[in-house]
Design a protein around this nucleic acid. Structure first.
Lengths: 194, 194
DNA sequence: TATCAGACCATAACACTGTTATCAAGTCTT
DNA sequence: AAGACTTGATAACAGTGTTATGGTCTGATA
């Protein structure tokens, strides 16, 4: 990676963290990187390439968050720790989280390479959840269980920063989410334990 | 409401349904309505006003979807019917659904009047869910239960049209969501029944 | 060594976007 | 009748992503 390319990437990351995806313009990025606008097109595929890089970065953060220790604790505890990390990630990297879930830039659709990283993250989540549910279940059922927990956590995070719920007194969102996830995970386990 | 204002609104709604929020430009709307660009600013508050109108329309659709018959069926069945309608709404009005959840236009934040409609919809959902859980619970607990079900349904819908999960073989999303919601609702009921 | 291909960079322009300034009619009230 | 307000259009401004074009500089090849 050339020096200019690295400069562009750090400039884009900084701007992204400061202003969110809304403040990301090719002129702002190239200006901060000390290049002309064309630098974005020489080193990346225009704005598409910049957003793809940040999108991939976002899902890599997800994978890192749910990469928990599965040997020194129960599978159930491991799943809860992973989801707890996931919630923390969404709060600490709001820009990335919004980007990988379609908020961010309206006219952006991730490239197939970027999508593949997203699918990889989901597969990793599935394998984590698989450890906590009975082993005799099929792959489809394990994927469905993983999807349920993911949907619950993501739904909460999505509602959390929605304008309509900010009016409503809700303290300690983090605990709320973890309680709901725990309740649901135990329901899944109980359902298949019979 | 003047004739021109109505023309603008229908033009905006049609364009919105056809192209989504991305294709909504003030020139495209005014052109279809047979007016100049300034018509949007004379009759609405610019693009902000257009999006506010559609945002409010979206939450009114939500309220209509969860306004189910609560007298001729069990509370549990009523809640499930409401959520089933909610899922159908998200599929039938993708544009509206994306708009009220922050996808749509990046540089749009709903006005306080629009947000109030969203909060009203959430309150309505809360009162519906309240019927299905024990009556001795506090208002806070009822809101939390409603939030859990809403988060689960919305999370599923959000994941459903995510690029990464479209690669994954998942048939009959609607049934998947309803199964998960039913599982969770029963878990909530069981938790407080002791 | 000379030449040619390709990478890198900048200036300028194009086609969009939302918004504002300005002005011309029409309408309604005082 | 006159002034205020609404409704209309034309034009411009600042911003966006993208493309065309040309210049330099490096490195490989004949």
């Amino acid at each position: 990676m050339s020096e200019s390319k690295a400069k562009i990437l750090t400039a884009a990351s900084e701007l992204f963290a400061e202003t969110g995806a809304g403040g990301l313009s090719v002129r702002a990025i190239s200006g901060r990187a000390g290049l002309s606008t064309m630098g974005i097109y020489n080193h990346f595929n225009g704005k598409q390439g910049i957003l793809d890089a940040l999108y991939i970065e976002g899902f890599q953060l997800v994978m890192r968050a749910i990469d928990v220790d599965v040997d020194n604790q129960t599978p159930r505890a491991a799943v809860l720790e992973g989801l707890s990390n996931y919630i923390a990630l969404a709060a600490d990297h709001r820009g990335h989280y919004q980007l990988i879930f379609g908020r961010g830039d309206t006219n952006y659709t991730p490239s197939s390479a970027a999508i593949a990283v997203g699918a990889e993250a989901f597969n990793q989540l599935t394998s984590l959840v698989s450890r906590a549910i009975p082993t005799h279940l099929s792959g489809r059922e394990k994927r469905e269980a993983a999807l349920q927990l993911w949907a619950l956590a993501h739904g909460y995070i999505s509602l959390q920063d929605h304008e309509a719920t900010e009016l409503i007194p809700m303290t300690a969102w983090r605990d709320l989410i973890l309680n709901a996830v725990t309740l649901h995970l135990d329901a899944i386990i109980a359902k298949h334990a019979t």
